[in-house]
Amino acid sequence: MFLGTHQPKLDDKGRLILPAKFRDQLANGLVITRGQERCLYVFPAAQFQQMYQELSQAPITSKQARDYIRVMLSGATDEVPDKQGRVIIPAALREYAGLDKELSVIGVGNRAEIWDAKAWQDYLDRQESEFAETAEEIIPGMF
């Protein structure tokens, strides 16, 4: 499970050193793709394959499903971390997420997300008050 917030830096070659806590889960390969809210999603390769199998069950006649699959898969890249735990983030994905040198890599359970550090802080600032106000109806049985 991916948990926590980490603050790595992007190097001049567009490489990210994966947080140490995430490396074992991603050592056999990973997929980086466009995420929602202009972040990047990082999935273990096997989990991405499973997710794709589920997505591929959507009817081809569903425009919403076609659109979602196109956006997600057209931006996807598969990577294997090097011995230092580094992966390259392609320029198109860096541009999509507005990544600069300072990053926030967060664990979101089944995936990690890569955010520009300022964009993550802005998002978190906006969401914290809503988080505090979350009612039981939103997540039944949670509170």
Rank of each mutant, 00 (worst) to 15 (best):
H6E: 10
H6T: 05
H6G: 11
Q7D: 06
Q7T: 12
Q7Y: 13
P8H: 08
K9I: 02
L10Y: 05
L10W: 06
L10F: 07
L10N: 03
D11G: 04
D11E: 02
D11Q: 05
D11K: 01
D12F: 02
D12C: 07
D12Q: 03
D12G: 08
K13R: 12
K13D: 03
G14M: 02
R15E: 04
R15F: 09
R15L: 03
R15V: 02
L16S: 00
L16G: 02
L18S: 04
L18Y: 02
P19S: 04
P19T: 03
A20Q: 08
A20S: 08
A20I: 00
K21V: 07
K21S: 11
R23I: 04
D24Q: 06
D24I: 04
D24R: 02
Q25I: 01
L26G: 01
A27F: 02
N28F: 06
N28Y: 06
N28E: 10
N28S: 09
G29P: 05
G29F: 08
G29D: 06
L30I: 04
L30W: 00
L30N: 04
V31W: 03
V31G: 00
I32A: 01
I32F: 01
I32T: 05
T33H: 02
T33S: 06
T33Q: 00
R34F: 01
Q36R: 03
Q36I: 10
E37F: 00
E37C: 01
R38H: 04
R38M: 05
R38N: 04
C39D: 01
C39R: 10
Y41A: 07
Y41N: 09
V42S: 00
F43S: 03
P44R: 03
P44Y: 01
A45W: 00
A46W: 00
A46S: 12
A46M: 05
Q47M: 07
Q47D: 14
F48G: 03
Q49M: 04
Q49A: 14
Q49G: 07
Q50H: 11
Q50E: 13
Q50V: 10
Q50D: 14
M51L: 15
M51V: 11
Y52R: 15
Y52V: 15
Q53D: 13
E54V: 09
L55I: 13
S56A: 10
S56K: 08
Q57A: 13
A58Q: 13
A58E: 11
I60P: 00
I60Y: 02
I60Q: 12
I60T: 11
T61C: 12
T61P: 07
T61S: 15
T61H: 11
T61E: 14
K63A: 08
K63G: 07
A65R: 07
A65S: 13
R66T: 05
R66A: 10
R66S: 14
D67M: 13
D67F: 07
D67I: 13
D67R: 14
D67G: 10
Y68W: 12
Y68T: 14
Y68A: 14
Y68G: 09
Y68L: 13
Y68N: 08
Y68S: 12
R70E: 08
R70H: 12
V71P: 12
V71A: 09
V71H: 11
M72I: 15
M72V: 13
L73E: 09
L73F: 11
S74A: 11
G75L: 01
A76V: 11
T77V: 15
T77Y: 14
D78G: 13
V80P: 08
V80E: 10
D82F: 15
K83W: 09
K83M: 13
K83H: 14
K83R: 15
K83S: 15
Q84M: 15
